[in-house]
Amino acid sequence: MEINITKGNVDIIAVSGSIDALTSSELVKTLNDHIHDGHPNVIVDFGKVEFMSSAGLRAILASVKEARAAGGDFRLASPQPGIDKVLKMAGFYNIVKIYPTVEEALASFG
């Protein structure tokens, strides 16, 4: 798994590879450190995420809670069809704002 952060009005955190039991703690740490570093609004670009397991879903959930507790929001962008299916199945569309593209996620912050 690789994580790249692009600074802007709202920072974009692009994740690539696999979010699973072996990598999820690194993702949670990076996201939560970033949120507590004065960036409670984040967009996580899922365009290059190839795999996500239940540990990955729990990691996302933990960071969503963290961002909202810090007064911001965690929004997810461009999940690939296989990942999108898992997100839908696990009910994430009901609790997280998910957009087909990073541009739409950016626009959602106004």
Binding site: A21, S53, S54, L57, R58, K85, K88, M89, A90, G91
Partner: peptide, 23 residues
């Protein structure tokens, strides 16, 4: 029912659930 039970167990389980969802 499938989605809500799966969502709950995903969040609750301490280890790993690997979903296989054939298309």
């Amino acid at each position: 029912i499938l989605k809500s039970t799966f969502a709950f167990y995903n969040a609750a389980h301490h280890a790993e659930i690997i979903p296989i969802l054939p298309s």
